[in-house]
Design a protein around this nucleic acid. Structure first.
Lengths: 205, 205
DNA sequence: TGCTATCCTTACATACTAGTAAGTAAGAAG
DNA sequence: CTTCTTACTTACTAGTATGTAAGGATAGCA
């Protein structure tokens, strides 16, 4: 209840997670060190170890927090938006927000480095994607029932295609430093699912 | 003309590139060291430096060779296959071959690590993707002219969506150790472009 | 005032990183 | 038969990685 921690106000552990998260999203888990994060926070290397005993532990905490925040955002989308196609747009919007801060999706980055990650981190990364897929499956089923979404493959396959394509679009947008690349890919992808006017959208000869 | 190099037959430099390529595709550029590659080849660390003065130089050589091999494969597709949709399938097949050897696309991996790469490697990665995009644009224009492919956005945007989605599908398939995830994504993506029988493919209500 | 817990520092240990310096065995070239 | 070149090795350096041990500062509380 009472206010604690007058030293570094916002809770050092939280600030460590914030800095480490940014570093991993930009440079990768193998591309950052305790020293980088410590220098950024102007504390010592050893202080990091006080809060997170090992890099593996810090990494796991990073994914847990990221996944929880993402789950909250998805729950907020469900509350705020009823329409299935609009939910998918909001989903892509979450990715866009990450990209706007010049970062890669934390778990997309970790997916690339997957083979070098400690086991608990590997498991947490897969869990993140499973949760995304589960949420998308609900939206796709809803859209199919409402008739606002149309697609050929199974709900599972389409959900996976959405995650894959958005992660891939983020991956590609960053070397080009071009958010429009992501936006173009996302809008094409969503357009191929949301078929409000099946006749009007095809411009082919 | 005459046979050279009786010491290590297949040319040590080539063998170094082979090993380093595999390591980067599996563990990333920041996830492997000279020592890893040297141990694998049973030569010393210093022998690597004899052939490739710096890690940056080795990395750049890796991309150049990978891009050249990819370009050759694309030229072979052009020679072997006339039909635009079949060309796209062959294109996805190249990705599938990489994934089958439990590797990520070299440049897809490097795209994730992009911010930490030396400048010459960054430039080479972007060049690789530009070449892919250029080849895909040709195929898409051909398919559009022939009427074998149909799509909404610009040829450029669709080419980029294909690269993004396939790279993303590779990225996601590896944590799950599941090639079928890639195959499902690729076939959905290509099906949405190849509209031979516009009526028959929609199963929606 | 002294006890205790929290949060941190200094100082260090150990291992690995890329990279270098110097020297050598063996074949090619003159 | 000498000289040069190729392809290494051994031995090393400076710097960085993660991680640890011990102790100090500060705050709240009895």
């Amino acid at each position: 209840m009472a206010v604690k921690r007058q030293r570094g106000d916002a809770d050092t552990a939280t600030k460590i997670l914030d800095v480490a998260e940014r570093l991993v999203q930009i440079r990768g888990f193998n591309g950052f060190s305790y020293a980088d994060a410590a220098a950024d926070l102007k504390i010592t290397n050893a202080a990091l170890h006080y809060h997170f005993a090992s890099k593996a532990e810090l990494g796991a905490a990073l994914i847990v927090r990221y996944a929880a925040r993402f789950a909250d955002a998805l729950a907020a989308v469900d509350t705020r938006i009823a329409d299935a196609p609009a939910k998918l747009e909001a989903y892509a919007g979450l990715y866009l927000d990450v990209l706007r801060s010049r970062r890669m999706c934390l778990c997309g980055m970790l997916a690339a480095e997957y083979q070098t990650l400690p086991k608990p981190m590997q498991a947490a990364v897969v869990r993140f994607f499973d949760e995304n897929e589960a949420w998308l499956k609900c939206v796709l089923e809803q859209g199919q029932a409402e008739g606002t979404l149309q697609f050929m493959g199974s709900v599972s396959d389409v959900a996976r295609l959405i995650v894959s394509s958005l992660e891939g679009a983020m991956l590609m947008a960053r070397p080009y430093g071009d958010i429009k690349r992501f936006q173009a890919a996302a809008s094409q992808l969503l357009a191929s699912l949301a078929r409000a006017t099946p006749q009007a959208e095809q411009m082919g000869n």
